[in-house]
Structure formats: C-alpha cells, structure tokens
Simulated assay, not measured.
Amino acid sequence: MNSLNPYLNFNGNTEEVFNFYKSVFGGEFAMVMRFGDTPGCENMPETEKNGIMHIALPIGSNVLMGTDVPKSMEQVTAGTNMSISVNVSSREEADRVYNGLSAGGKATMPMNDMFWGDYYGMLTDRYQIQWMISYSEKYQS
C-alpha cells in the first residue's frame, strides 16, 4: 500500500474550496484537470466544462484531492461528499483491495485502465464508505 488520501466531492465550487484550503495550508496544486480538457467530456454542457475534474493539494505527506460533480450526475450530499483514495503498489494489489472492499457493497466503476494512465476503480463498501482504488506504474520505483 502506497498511500490513503481524502477525496472530496462538490457541487460546482471545488475551485473555490481548494483555493481556500491552499490559503490555509499553503503549498501549490500538484494537478488541476478541468472537464473540458479531458476525453469523453466533449458533449458536456459549456457551463460545466470549466469545472474541476481533478485537483490535488499536497499537505505534508498526504494529498487532499477533489472534484466537481457534474449536474447530470447525482448531486453531492452529506455522506456522498467524500471518498478515500487508495494508491497501491501493483495491479494485483489493486484487484485484491477492490474485490475485498466491494464484497457486500456496490461496485460503481470496475477496475480498468484509464485515459490518464492509472489502473483505477470506484466502489461503495457495505458500510456506505466510498473508495477509489488506483495503481500507477509511473509512481513505482
């Protein structure tokens, strides 16, 4: 296991929220990815293309991450506004962790190779906790 990090979901104000967190914790964003710059979002409404698909703010040895949830998806409420992002050391570990956590829960996005290069999946466990499992070859030594 490489790391566990919080992943926050917002209804369109992620950039505002993360600029606030940056003002409190300091540092620089490690990544800012907008919907309009990503494959598969070409038909998204123009009003949502500037939304944050992924943002990352390193804080100490952890990374606070977040996203805007498009209006076409179920809107964020208390309980769906946070996930735990798990970065693992191998594809096999990703499958093992994903299968273990999804047992008795809901597999929302099966493990698969993603356009940004990670092997990635999402699920909600039997206790209603949302998880994001990710393996990236580029971060292995």
Results as ranks from 00 to 15, higher is better:
50 N>E: 13
109 M>H: 03
101 L>N: 02
9 N>W: 06
120 Y>T: 05
20 F>L: 15
86 V>S: 09
120 Y>P: 12
79 G>F: 00
114 M>N: 15
17 V>G: 03
65 M>F: 08
124 T>I: 12
64 L>V: 13
113 D>K: 02
17 V>L: 07
121 G>E: 04
28 E>L: 04
69 V>L: 02
121 G>F: 01
105 G>L: 04
32 V>L: 12
79 G>V: 01
70 P>T: 06
5 N>P: 03
60 G>D: 06
2 N>V: 09
105 G>I: 10
20 F>N: 15
33 M>C: 11
11 N>P: 04
94 A>S: 07
1 M>N: 12
131 W>Q: 11
91 R>E: 15
29 F>I: 09
21 Y>E: 10
35 F>M: 11
90 S>G: 07
28 E>P: 07
66 G>Q: 08
64 L>A: 12
89 S>T: 14
42 E>R: 01
47 T>S: 13
84 I>Q: 12
139 Y>W: 09
131 W>C: 10
109 M>T: 12
123 L>M: 02
4 L>E: 05
7 Y>N: 10
46 E>P: 13
67 T>C: 11
99 N>D: 15
51 G>V: 00
139 Y>I: 07
44 M>R: 07
87 N>L: 08
10 F>K: 08
76 V>W: 03
108 T>M: 06
77 T>F: 05
49 K>A: 10
57 L>G: 01
136 S>V: 04
55 I>G: 06
45 P>L: 03
77 T>V: 13
87 N>V: 13
95 D>S: 03
66 G>K: 04
74 E>L: 11
67 T>I: 09
23 S>E: 12
117 G>N: 07
74 E>T: 13
59 I>R: 00
75 Q>E: 12
15 E>W: 06
46 E>L: 11
76 V>D: 06
89 S>N: 15
26 G>I: 01
48 E>W: 00
81 N>T: 11
69 V>F: 04
56 A>D: 09
110 P>A: 12
22 K>T: 11
123 L>C: 02
23 S>P: 08
86 V>P: 02
75 Q>L: 03
25 F>S: 05
14 T>Q: 10
14 T>V: 00
72 S>C: 05
95 D>W: 03
4 L>V: 15
